[in-house]
Amino acid sequence: MIVHNLSEKNSIINQFIAELRDVNVQKDSMRFRRNIERIGEILSYEMSKTLNYTNKTITTPLAEMDVKTYVNDLVLCSVLRAGVPLHNGLLNYFDAAENAFISAYRHHKDNPDSFEIVVEYLACPDLNNKTLILADPMLATGQSLVATYKALQPFGVPKNLHIFAVLGAKEGVDYLEKHLPKDAHLWIATVDKELNSKGYIVPGLGDAGDLAFGEKLQH
């Protein structure tokens, strides 16, 4: 897997990451969602440099001219619910893309420190020979994204696979490298060093879904 860690260079994305982490700024849920959306836009712009382009003739009010436009068939798939603001950021740039949505969450049984990934809702177009972008803000253990990728396999074989994440842990990145295709790309805003005993990213930023949309009822 090819990893693109955008925090390794100085850019405005580091400001957005800092605001996502800051407990005082986090109190503004609208700003939290917008920062995730903006990071999605930056990740989209950087990834767009890898797409295939062709010349297209357009007509302006004054003349005809040739411009380069991308020719990839894109499918954007976000993991609900935290992935919604990130998905919006992708759509701001790839507005002609098809869309897929999937729910994947941690289900804790008797031991609160152990869990399994449960995939329930899934809506997806045909994926054959398309460029698939899987978007999930938090890459902790990596199990949710791998479970999502496996759940999408009945819909076809994509030509290219890109993973978008806002914040991850080194362990999660390593897990993806072991379980996803070797030519997959990971586009991520920043990577933290570790997970705690419950599988949460440290220092991390907390629960992205709760911070974006409010606390959820447990079941």
Score class of each variant (00 low, 15 high):
residue 145 L to W: 06
residue 47 M to E: 13
residue 49 K to W: 05
residue 141 T to F: 10
residue 86 L to E: 04
residue 109 K to L: 14
residue 111 N to D: 15
residue 124 C to D: 02
residue 79 V to R: 05
residue 93 Y to W: 00
residue 55 N to P: 15
residue 164 F to C: 04
residue 49 K to T: 10
residue 165 A to Q: 00
residue 75 V to K: 02
residue 162 H to R: 10
residue 174 D to I: 00
residue 123 A to I: 09
residue 165 A to H: 00
residue 125 P to D: 08
residue 49 K to M: 12
residue 69 T to C: 09
residue 124 C to E: 04
residue 123 A to Y: 04
residue 73 D to F: 04
residue 123 A to H: 08
residue 108 H to G: 08
residue 56 K to T: 13
residue 69 T to V: 14
residue 136 D to L: 05
residue 132 L to V: 13
residue 96 A to N: 14
residue 174 D to K: 00
residue 56 K to I: 12
residue 129 N to S: 05
residue 63 A to N: 10
residue 134 L to V: 06
residue 65 M to I: 15
residue 102 I to G: 05
residue 106 R to V: 08
residue 141 T to C: 10
residue 89 G to L: 08
residue 161 L to F: 00
residue 132 L to K: 02
residue 134 L to P: 02
residue 146 V to W: 08
residue 141 T to A: 09
residue 117 I to P: 13
residue 120 E to H: 14
residue 134 L to M: 03
residue 141 T to K: 10
residue 80 L to A: 04
residue 108 H to P: 08
residue 69 T to E: 14
residue 142 G to P: 11
residue 50 T to I: 08
residue 123 A to L: 02
residue 73 D to Q: 12
residue 153 Q to T: 14
residue 110 D to L: 11
residue 71 V to T: 11
residue 116 E to K: 05
residue 123 A to C: 04
residue 95 D to C: 06
residue 46 E to F: 11
residue 48 S to G: 15
residue 149 Y to S: 10
residue 91 L to T: 14
residue 78 S to H: 07
residue 89 G to P: 07
residue 56 K to S: 05
residue 157 V to K: 15
residue 68 K to D: 07
residue 108 H to T: 14
residue 159 K to S: 15
residue 147 A to S: 15
residue 72 N to M: 05
residue 71 V to R: 02
residue 85 P to Y: 06
residue 104 A to E: 09
residue 144 S to F: 12
residue 116 E to M: 07
residue 84 V to H: 01
